[in-house]
Amino acid sequence: MEEGIGAPPQAIFDAMDVHIGERAAKGVFLDGGGLYGTEDAVNFVVRKGEVTRVDGPYAEGKEVVGGWAIMEYADLDEAVADQREFAELHAKHWPEATVIATLRQISEGPEAPGD
């Protein structure tokens, strides 16, 4: 999501409340939440065995993670379809924002997805 474009409109909050509520009722939505911007973020960078602390804001970053959700689906097709619906909610209710909705699997061990 773009940083520094202002607060999301109430319409996206209302749409997301319905979206998340429906998924929570089905047992799909397990956990999630929104994140503040990078103005007070703290990163620890590990490079060549050394740890460095870097405080925000980050001038080089155009996009930041604005929120997260842990969802559980029966299969990948269902997850992809629901992720598209999530993206379409943003297109409809907050069209002036650039939002990248990323779907990733949670690792439960050292094996790769599908192993």
Rank of each mutant, 00 (worst) to 15 (best):
H90S: 10
E88T: 12
D82V: 02
A81E: 15
G56L: 13
A69N: 12
Y58M: 02
E60I: 06
E88M: 12
E60T: 07
R84G: 01
A74K: 14
E63F: 09
H90Y: 15
G56D: 08
A87R: 13
E63Y: 14
W68R: 02
E63K: 12
V64A: 06
A79Y: 08
E78W: 00
F86K: 01
V80Q: 05
G56A: 12
A87D: 14
E78R: 01
E72L: 04
A59N: 06
Q83A: 14
Q83Y: 01
D82K: 01
V65T: 07
E72W: 02
Y73I: 05
D55M: 06
L89S: 10
G66A: 14
I70T: 04
D75N: 15
G67F: 11
A59R: 06
D75M: 07
G61S: 11
Y73W: 14
E88H: 07
V80M: 04
R84N: 05
E63A: 04
D82G: 00
I70C: 10
G56S: 08
V64S: 11
W68M: 14
L76C: 03
L76Y: 04
M71W: 13
I70L: 15
A59S: 12
G67W: 10
A74I: 04
G56M: 05
A87L: 15
W68E: 07
W68L: 13
A69E: 15
V64D: 05
G67V: 09
E88L: 14
G67R: 08
K62H: 11
A81Y: 02
L76V: 14
